Computed example of a mutant assay.
Amino acid sequence: MNSRGYEIRSIRSDEWRQVKELRLDALRDPVAHLAFLETYEKAVAEPDAFWQDRASGAAVGATARQQIVAVGEDGVWAGSVTVLVEQAGVPDAFGEVPEYDQGHVVGVYVRPEYRGSEAGVTRGLFDAALAWSWASGLERVRLFVHERNGRAEAFYRKAGFLPTGETTPMPGGTDELELEFAITPG
């Protein structure tokens, strides 16, 4: 899939160095504390084997999670998004038991110079994440957004995600709002 000069695609397992670089950049972002549960200090200390495993577990062909990336014509990764698969009846990462087979969008990051660009990088990433989710047979896709991350919430709503009315507590004593995209094509 192309988005005005960017190739939007699933990562390959041999791209662990790029996965690591983009994630470390994301964790240095000024709003990282609102958007990610991981810290830069923890992530930078991880060995190469961690990043290799992370990439292979989210690469093209994986079924439990998929990382989608926007790669510019210059080879620079402009951003990425990951979809985790949560199965109906199986406790998720928060200990909740979903009613549906669903995707959980995490790790959303677009480099600042590509945010809001005419190239539509963020929209392209979300369109690809939703397409992968529907093709995987998922019935619903959800994400959580920090109550003080207004820019992200505004984009998610524009992309078609709507509040469910649910919140979940996060480390640090804050709550995050759950939004969902529940309309499957067909």
Results as ranks from 00 to 15, higher is better:
G72I: 02
E96S: 10
G72V: 05
V97T: 11
I68K: 05
Q66L: 06
V76Y: 06
P98D: 09
G89T: 13
G89Y: 09
A78E: 00
A88P: 10
V81Y: 00
P91W: 01
V81A: 00
T82Y: 04
P91C: 08
R65W: 00
V71W: 01
A70Y: 04
E86G: 12
V85A: 12
G95S: 07
R65I: 08
G95E: 11
Q87A: 14
P98R: 09
V83G: 06
V69F: 03
V71A: 00
A70S: 01
Q67C: 02
E99H: 11
G72P: 07
G89M: 12
E99C: 15
F94C: 13
V76W: 11
V90Y: 00
V76E: 08
S80Y: 04
Y100H: 15
P98Q: 08
Y100G: 13
Q67W: 00
A64M: 11
Q67K: 02
G75K: 07
A64S: 08
A93D: 09
D101L: 13
V69G: 01
D74Y: 02
V76M: 12
V83Q: 03
V83S: 08
A64L: 09
E99P: 08
A93Y: 10
V81S: 00
V83L: 06
V69R: 03
A78N: 07
V69C: 02
V90K: 13
